[in-house]
Design a binder for these strands. Structure first.
Lengths: 401, 401
DNA sequence: GATCGATTGTTTGGCGATCAAATTAAATAT
DNA sequence: ATATTTAATTTGATCGCCAAACAATCGATC
């Protein structure tokens, strides 16, 4: 009995793999092994990867020829020929841009995430002006590192942008209109430009660089004016459809709560952001003297023993932990990173948050680690480095290192 | 300057890939292409995959030899030699077990998820008894299909179990103690046993079998006594650390809400499960006649015009939609599947849920599709088929078909 | 009814990548 | 100076895909 088959299928996509795919994979594997364990000898690579030493030699030869890797000094061993150590070539640099509501930080970093130079400018009110200033400074930076190879530009900002169109579409704290930052900067500089939300950049930084004890399910909670979350699930960034995931900060904890900038009521960030703590503080003050207190001031007041400040901080911490119920029950990560100025007073926040989180683990579930990330500023910038490097080193989760 | 390198690394793990990995990948690709597009000719496969016809021929020869694929009838074409159509060998079968609070369903399915035989038993009060009865019936089932090859056993149940130890650890609606189902059944039958949470099984069923318009970010919300969620993120099931993800049903929507079985207050499932609707209904009745109404009865009453029933259903629908804020804002899926008895009255639930969801999309975000899944019973069972087949066809997300 | 055209499916030789083993290189201990 | 040990390279074999030629099969056409 004859059956209807597909008549003609356009052969646009290549799904099958050929022999070169193996080389691609192993090449990325070797590159990442060097990245995470440098310095490392060829023999070490062979042992760690399980590949033959001959294969490693060929791959490394390639990587050196293309100046991703450099031969280092020879190491000392108790017996036998001394191995030559391999490391990443630090002459390849990345330009990182960290956009925040108040200021923008630009920096030049090497492939290991170490910063060579750095500068700051106040954040312009309009993105057009920001683009002009950024382009000018980036061009100067490029000229400043003539002998280096500039790999690309990574930009992180506190907002969401459509991953299809690269347009910034939701940045309530930045107060910029919808716009496309990528294209104008890419065209003006001739470099690749990759963008990422701030919370995601923090996640990238954490899992790319300092994986002392790597986990494949992790959530970063960034607390400042608002609350953002970066989701690392199954060893990959979870960006959601068109990059819109991660707005747990705009989920209501209490439908009767105060109004939020997003239009809803009682969102998590209304109860647990820096702004919320200041609100608690001001409400508890009889006088109006607290009006111009910053969040950092509040932390200092708390450490000086100010009862109202202590209470405000405590309340914020409790709500932070309470909101993590969404993350603990819904996503069950192995680790939760907490990022923001609050980590400076971790002795105050840590115990409260951990107690709340522990109370919320469901029967049979395991308690996630709650880890403060202290060097916030650098974290985001280092995230942009990882962002740019992913093109060459492979997506996270692609290669298990 | 000599540097310290790794002295000796145990070569336990093989990270690097060899040439055979390409064959493995392409083999899985071809197998999945046949699965999703059968019937299909070798020439079609070559066009779709981008591989050479010669390569396809060799791979298909393998697959036929190992009885995964069978040559079918020749098809008709306007010109030229008629192609032979390929399809999956339906002599390979899977035993699926769907455990529910009230009854357990066992079924034998072929690789296409079509069921040959099926039987039901009431759910025993204790897992030990359940294991005894299941083993006995499964053995009979195996004997019943002598000429077929039994690939394995897939079990789905309404609870969480530790993916490391395979122990059931959280099943509030099933009321079974912590236990290991897998090992005794596997040992007694000599077959592979794979287990999965009910919501995840529904997701598997949806993305494995009827991908009319495939998406890579999807959330299934299963509504019955409680609310469970299955997360499909970046084209993979998101099980979280030790398989504990997906309990969005136990996140509070209102801290002042009624107590939940989990120990917390005001959880989503307290407001939006079948049980919640019945509570709304009973509370609004002056008499006690409503005590023995089932959820299905309630839906019928609503369709008969009973005002209290309509209000109860409407309230449940609103809360269902409201709770989806967590999913919409936090995960931003492209599609939300709604599963449970409520889909029988989708004309009542659908519009309310969709309106709530639409109201909750953040600026710049896109509204997820809300899709009811009507054949719940079969969905879970078919999910178990996918579960067992993943070992041979590859994990979801591994191969893009 | 034989030939041509078109399409499917198979066969053949070549290339690229890894493997396994032998070889060369370099350093320490005897 | 020689033996030993480990690192790194070289060499030939194997495996998998590709490209192109070839064989098979069917409809249309002369």
């Amino acid at each position: 009995m004859p059956v209807d088959l597909i008549k003609r299928v356009p052969t646009t996509t290549m799904l099958g793999h050929s022999n070169e795919a193996v080389r691609d994979f192993n090449r990325r594997l070797v590159l990442n092994l060097i990245r995470t364990r440098q310095p490392l000898s060829r023999a070490d690579l062979a042992r760690v990867s399980g590949l033959q030493r001959s294969t490693i030699s060929l791959i490394v030869e390639d990587l050196i020829k293309e100046s991703w890797v450099v031969d280092g000094p020879t190491a000392k061993l108790p017996r036998g020929r001394h191995p030559t150590s391999l490391r990443l070539n630090e002459d390849r640099v990345i330009i990182g841009v960290d956009v925040r509501p108040s200021q923008i930080t630009l920096a030049v970093a090497d492939v290991n995430g170490r910063f060579n130079s750095q500068e700051q400018i106040p954040t312009p009110n309009h993105p057009d002006q920001a683009i002009r200033e950024l382009v000018e400074r980036i061009k100067r930076m490029i000229q400043g590192c003539r002998d280096k190879m500039v790999e690309g530009i990574g930009i992180t900002l506190p907002g969401r942008f459509d991953t299809d169109s690269n347009r910034l579409v939701f940045a309530p704290n930045l107060k910029w209109p919808e716009c496309d930052l990528r294209t104008p900067i890419a065209e003006a500089t001739g470099l690749d430009v990759v963008m990422e939300n701030a919370a995601n950049a923090s996640v990238l930084s954490a899992v790319w660089f300092k994986q002392e004890n790597p986990v494949s399910n992790l959530v970063a909670v960034t607390v400042s004016e608002g609350i953002g979350t970066g989701l690392f699930i199954n060893g990959q960034l979870a960006r959601g459809f068109r990059g819109m995931a991660g707005e747990f900060g705009h989920v209501p904890l209490d439908p009767q709560g105060p109004a939020c900038t997003c239009g809803s009521r009682g969102c998590w960030e209304v109860f647990a952001s820096n702004r919320a703590a200041l609100r608690y503080f001001i409400e508890s003050q009889s006088t109006d003297t607290a009006d111009k207190t910053s969040f950092i001031d509040l932390l200092i007041l708390a450490d000086q023993g100010n009862k109202s400040a202590i209470d405000a901080v405590d309340c914020m911490a409790r709500y932070l932990g309470r909101g993590m119920r969404m993350i603990v029950a819904g996503l069950s990560p192995e680790r939760i990173l907490v990022i923001g100025e609050l980590t400076r007073s971790w002795h105050r926040f840590g115990p409260v948050i951990e107690a709340e989180v522990r109370a919320q683990v469901l029967p049979g579930g395991s308690v996630p680690q709650v880890v403060p990330v202290h060097e916030d500023g650098m974290a985001r910038l280092r995230g942009t480095v990882a962002l740019v490097l992913q093109k060459h080193f492979g997506q996270l989760g692609e290669v298990a290192v």
